[in-house]
């Protein structure tokens, strides 16, 4: 076991735990954001750099601070380590920089994006971003392409977190898509656009933090905040069969895996559950799904959001995560 202090809060965690996961054990606002790390996918993380934190004391044995900010998702804790996240202006400044970099080539058209309302980048930029872009040049754009007949790739929105390639590597036997080219010309592609037909390929959609990979069978049917999410399950011989049904009236518009509070899927689902059972009768409904208030899904009126309210919402969220009584919602 190792004792670590993060933003002044001490926690004891198993050896080898990363700083990020130690912070998640504390919970609340000291948890660094993560855009590329994904706890249920091996070897993810380290790339996006939004989770950077400052290690002011390396360990009890070697109390020297680490010379640079470190990626908390990939840095293991040491006994006696002291970490600063939101209490370090340097970290917040760097994070602001990273968010700006991530948004640099990202289209600013959230209102028409299919992921709007459940996009990690959108949430992140509200919290850490700068108001106005300083980027004057043309943004990188790509045509939308199909990866197989169920997934749409809109590379323009991709932040190159590589999560989808790890899904393909770790959940499917045959990875046919990957990262091509290099630098800021990198792109996710199947190259000659081979189809991804594997029982678990649909999970790429769920792990994608932005609207780059979306479910073609759902697209354009409805904005996500007009749908009602329900926890449901069925007996499946391929996967756990535990899903979220995104419904409108009696219609199942979309099926996805369940995500935890950090927007991560812990139990992946198969393509059959995802695509082939869009009928309430196929499912045992468990009840409404609790959606993190943090996200704009719960806002109902995305277009009307003003920053003031959003700020309040974030504050509410912070209070909530601290375990205090949740104040009444300010939404109409």
């Amino acid at each position: 076991m190792a004792k670590v202090t993060i933003d002044g809060i001490e926690v004891e965690v198993a050896d080898g735990t990363t700083i990020l996961n130690a912070a998640r054990q504390i919970g609340g606002e000291v948890v660094p954001p993560a855009m590329c790390y994904y706890s249920s996918l091996k070897d993810t993380g380290g790339k996006c750099r939004v989770c950077l934190v400052k290690v002011t004391q390396g360990s009890a044995k070697d109390p020297r601070p680490m010379p640079k900010l470190v990626a908390s998702c990939r840095t293991p804790v040491m006994d006696g380590m002291v970490v600063q996240n939101i209490t370090s202006p340097e970290v917040l400044e760097a994070r602001k920089g990273v968010v700006e970099f991530l948004l640099l080539n990202h289209p600013l058209d959230c209102p028409v994006c299919d992921q709007a309302g459940e996009c990690d980048l959108q949430n992140l930029s509200y919290e850490h971003g700068v108001g106005k872009t300083r980027y004057e040049e043309d943004r990188r754009t790509f045509e939308k392409i199909d990866i197989g007949d169920k997934i749409k790739l809109h590379m323009t929105r991709c932040i190159l977190c590589y999560r989808c390639t790890f899904v393909a590597d770790q959940l499917t036997q045959e990875r046919v898509h990957g990262v091509l080219n290099r630098g800021d010309a990198s792109e996710i592609s199947t190259y000659i656009e081979k189809a991804v037909d594997n029982d678990f390929s649909g999970n790429m959609i769920d792990v994608c933090p932005v609207g780059a990979l979306t479910d073609k069978t759902f697209r354009f049917k409805s904005r996500v905040w007009f749908t009602k999410p329900l926890d449901a399950h069925r007996d499946c011989d391929k996967c756990c069969g535990k899903v979220v049904l995104w419904t409108k009236g009696d219609d199942v518009l979309r099926v996805s895996a369940r995500k935890d509070q950090y927007n991560e899927v812990k139990e992946y689902i198969c393509n059959e559950c995802r695509y082939d059972h869009k009928d309430m009768k196929d499912w045992t409904i468990e009840g409404p799904r609790h959606i993190d208030r943090h996200s704009v899904i719960s806002q109902n009126h995305y277009e009307k959001i003003d920053m003031q309210k959003l700020k309040l919402d974030i504050d509410r969220q912070l209070t909530f995560q601290k375990g205090k009584q949740l104040p009444e919602t300010t939404n109409p």
Partner: peptide, 21 residues
């Protein structure tokens, strides 16, 4: 450096191109 960035991490991938432009 823009040309040679591997593109894995966002500050280098996006920042080198920005500075070049």
């Amino acid at each position: 450096y823009h040309h040679e960035s591997c593109g894995q991490c966002s500050p280098c991938r996006e920042g080198t191109g920005w500075m070049e432009k």
